[in-house]
């Protein structure tokens, strides 16, 4: 039995699938996702005394996993930054009922995103975290989260739809690396 009735076995059963999928979408590799999931639970078991409220277990585990992932990629310089250009512009589009997106293709596009954009978009679409939840996860103002989500969504649409119908959506102009001065997003990039 864990602290305040929180059983580690129940934590595993309730959250391991979501954590693995989150880890996979973050890292893009099955082996890394498995390692991250195990590392997350290992750290969680050691710190289970910190978890006082069972309702907060999910967010707590996701935060541990993200921190573990960030620790691994801390020195990874292969970040890409999505500019905000065009996000607020009105696209010309037709509704697509029953639209299907290939999971592998989605992962390829996610891998192109910087983690600061990838994490909110994964949490938003995959685990249905609210803007507030994502802001808490990433220790960011909620406006920043909304702005990043908007930009990341726009980028996903552009990249994913561009594969099928390149001219359907208005797209960002280009990718820029963090070292490119005009591509660096503002810290206060809220709406």
């Amino acid at each position: 039995m864990g602290i305040d009735g929180i059983r580690p076995q129940e934590l595993i059963d309730a959250h391991y699938e979501a954590l693995y999928r989150y880890a996979y979408r973050l890292s893009g590799k099955a082996a890394d996702a498995e390692d991250l999931t195990q590392e997350t639970f290992s750290k969680a078991f050691s710190r289970i005394g910190q978890l006082r409220d069972h309702e907060r277990a999910k967010g707590w585990l996701f935060r541990i996993l993200r921190n573990a992932y960030l620790h691994r990629v801390r020195d990874d310089r292969r970040h890409r930054i999505v500019p905000l250009d065009g996000v607020g512009d009105l696209p010309d589009r037709q509704p697509e009922e029953g639209l299907e997106i290939d999971s592998a293709q989605l992962q390829k596009v996610l891998n192109e995103l910087d983690e600061t954009f990838r994490t909110p978009i994964i949490l938003y679409y995959f685990e249905e975290f609210s803007y507030r939840d994502i802001a808490d996860q990433m220790s960011l103002p909620i406006g920043t989260v909304m702005s990043r989500l908007a930009r990341a969504k726009s980028y996903l649409r552009q990249r994913l739809s561009g594969l099928d119908t390149p001219d359907r959506f208005q797209t960002p102009d280009r990718f820029q690396t963090p070292d490119t001065p005009d591509g660096e997003p503002s810290r206060n990039d809220g709406p």
Binding site: Y20, A30, E100, I101, S103, L106, F126, E128
Partner: peptide, 12 residues
């Protein structure tokens, strides 16, 4: 569609 694709990750 993005929600479905995002969750379409087979768990070992």
């Amino acid at each position: 569609a993005l929600s479905r694709a995002m969750a379409a990750v087979p768990v070992p």
